[in-house]
Nucleic acid binder design. Structure first.
Lengths: 242, 242, 242, 242
DNA sequence: GATGAATGAGGATTCATTCAT
DNA sequence: AATGAATGAATCCTCATTCAT
């Protein structure tokens, strides 16, 4: 009896709750110490379980960390999905994605770092759920670009994949100093700069010299003619600037 | 006597030669096994040296690896410097830098990986000689952009830093699959794509050639006029650029 | 299966028991080989434990050794406490402490050596539990002296600290040869000699009672007699105080 | 020729000078860093020779350190010899020796430490020249005590060896805190305290028991009266304690 | 299901000493 | 005699994972 009194009451909890506790604890420890210095024993202690219990739900440390980062990505995606619908126009949408990504990184530098340093370089990354999630995330850019090309907002012939890499690559380059704790960054400023550059790179070819101004008039006149004859003009025949 | 028989004849060499031997061996082992699995003992053996000798010239393993990567960077810079002078025009120069970088990575995936995974994320990276070398390398982009802005080849108001990050970030994103041994890449194709995109992003606001743009629009308007007269023109009858 | 066959059956024991086993093994190995040549791996083997298990209970080798020596000191103190109560009189008490210390050293020369050579000279010795224990031990001397001064058994004005240092310092000097394996010593003889010397050093100054006062007068009278007869008195015939 | 110009001119020096240079350098480095952290390479550099040259004159590091400490001891002995002749009286002589020892330690804590920690505990210490020198030094105490006993200044029956150990042991105990950098000490104060205590311990038997002392005095007085009456009593007719 | 004690592999690093030049 | 490059042995410690209770 004395022993029973001393022993911590064994908590019998639904697996889901346990898993959640462990992941919350793991995320906290990972954020505090980084992937390398986060010990399983520390995580177990913070979660209020013993080390062995973690291995009931996670096959190993990497798996645990992976699922934590996955959780973060899922939250990010959900959050993104909830907000992005109201954004209209390719430019605004691009800007929104970039800004959202930067803000997410700023909120969770430790997890960002783990993603970039541990998982992305790993041999089987492409078969990972993390890869899938990241794809889902970066696919937004591809979709936006494709749609904008279709509507004529962006010129045809652009490779959405390159655009995607350019955007995310640029973001990463910018934020490494921050991840190294060597400085801060302003998500608004960076997303503006990136969006502007990308937008210019993708905008349809235009001109504003006197000749093209003359052509503008010709254009407009033509349009009026079109209206008068009720013929259907081609979709987005021309565009000066967004 | 037995010991004497076992003892390898001591080779007395100038320090420079030894250092070179060790670095060559280290580079080979690093390439074969990666930074983590490269053992000092293996490197020593391959260099024909005893472990302790390595520590005469390198303060620790990290230092050795760092100097190997530095050596690679120095070679890259020298190689680059030797070739780039003949390249004229901002566009060509950009393309050349990007292509050179991609080709270097393709030649040394292991060292690239070490650079990206080990050194760049490290706390004091900015105080590193490696950072300096990398800066020197990426500064080329900045210089090219600035010069092109000065000559009017690029529009004013662009941030060279963002351009640099966009280019190198894009390159990195593209090559991770390759570094993971999951696929190959074509330096020419990627450098073309990047250059094109960047070039467009930086071109003066009237487009690339105002006259040809104007002609494009005249073309389109004419097509609509044609529609009005019910003559069926071929779709996109002509196109200047893709 | 082969692995299972090789693996020693895992014994699950209460922490206390394991710690005790390890400390016993460590003490044995330390005694056999000395602090420097005692390998953690040897200690682990003797304790029937794997090296890693030692580090569950001791933060490092030094910590283990320290705790072994502490244990020895605690035993000594307990043993001392159990015996000393029956000893009456400052002289006997001093003699008892000295003898007890000498006997302890004789029983554990290796641990004594470690204490004197490793721990006492260490930078933070004073913040060590070992210092505390040693203080407790040597404090006995101080207490005895103070008490004896209070009862008049020892003269007033003596510095108990110096007495303590003199006693323990003398002991150490005497036993180094033994610790060097160069000779033996007799605790009884040494404790007698030390006690005698110290006792004399601390004895009250000779008396001022009525008898001696009377003798003083006799003395003086005799002196006058001497003067009258011009005989030569012996050098330093008498002395009251130095 | 170019090579010859770069090479440091080989200095050909008398062995004695080289040895002196090396010992001076070694002493400096030992004082700065302690025996353990003093590297042969550092000593060589400071002495302006190469490591190999040290081994021409010293068989190994320990030998070098030993000879440095020997040198210090020789200086101490010479210095002592030069000063002590003027000191008269056992008490003053004792005080002088103790003070001299304390002052020497205060001047060279690093070397003192090496002596106490490295050499004295070493297995063959007694066969060491260092032991001889130390003996010579501590022998002074023995000689002083013996002489004082002979003159009657000290009582007979004292063991000079114990006195010596008591004095040097006490000194050591007092100075360990200083050697650990944890405090200072005052040579004058300590030497006074030690001398006083020792002197009292060795003073002739003026008595511990006032009655017997009184009887002693009566005895002596009676003897003198007897002398006055020309009867010859036996020398020191009776004695209470040795 | 929970516990947590036990496992055990694995590698960088130091520096006194030697001896070919 | 001087040089100084080369030698190489030797051991502590970590912590994810397992499995007997």
């Amino acid at each position: 009896m004395a022993r029973a009194a001393l022993r911590r009451p064994v908590q019998r909890m639904p697996a889901e709750r346990r898993i959640a506790d462990i992941m919350v604890a793991a995320r906290a420890i990972l954020t505090e110490r980084g992937a390398n210095d986060a010990l399983i024993s520390d995580i177990a202690e913070r979660a209020g379980v013993v080390e062995g219990s973690i291995y009931r739900f996670f096959s190993n440390k990497r798996d645990l960390v992976e699922r934590v980062v996955e959780g973060w990505y899922e939250d990010m995606l959900a959050d993104y999905g909830a907000q992005c619908d109201g954004v209209r126009g390719a430019r605004n949408q691009l800007r929104f994605v970039v800004h959202h990504h930067l803000a997410s990184i700023k909120r969770e530098p430790a997890l960002s770092r783990i993603m970039l340093q541990e998982f992305r370089p790993a041999p089987n990354y492409r078969k990972t759920r993390l890869f899938q999630l990241n794809q889902t995330y970066s696919q937004r850019i591809v979709d936006i670009v494709k749609a904008a090309v279709a509507t004529g907002e962006f010129r045809p012939g652009v490779s959405p994949g390159i655009v995607r890499d350019m955007i995310f690559g640029c973001i990463e380059h910018r934020i490494w100093a921050f991840l190294r704790n060597e400085g801060d960054f302003d998500p608004v400023e960076i997303s503006d700069a990136i969006t502007d550059l990308v937008y210019r790179a993708l905008a349809p070819d235009t001109g504003t010299d006197s000749l093209s101004l003359a052509l503008d008039r010709l254009d407009e006149t033509t349009a009026r003619l079109e209206q008068l004859t009720r013929s259907k003009p081609p979709v987005r025949a021309r565009k000066l600037k967004s």
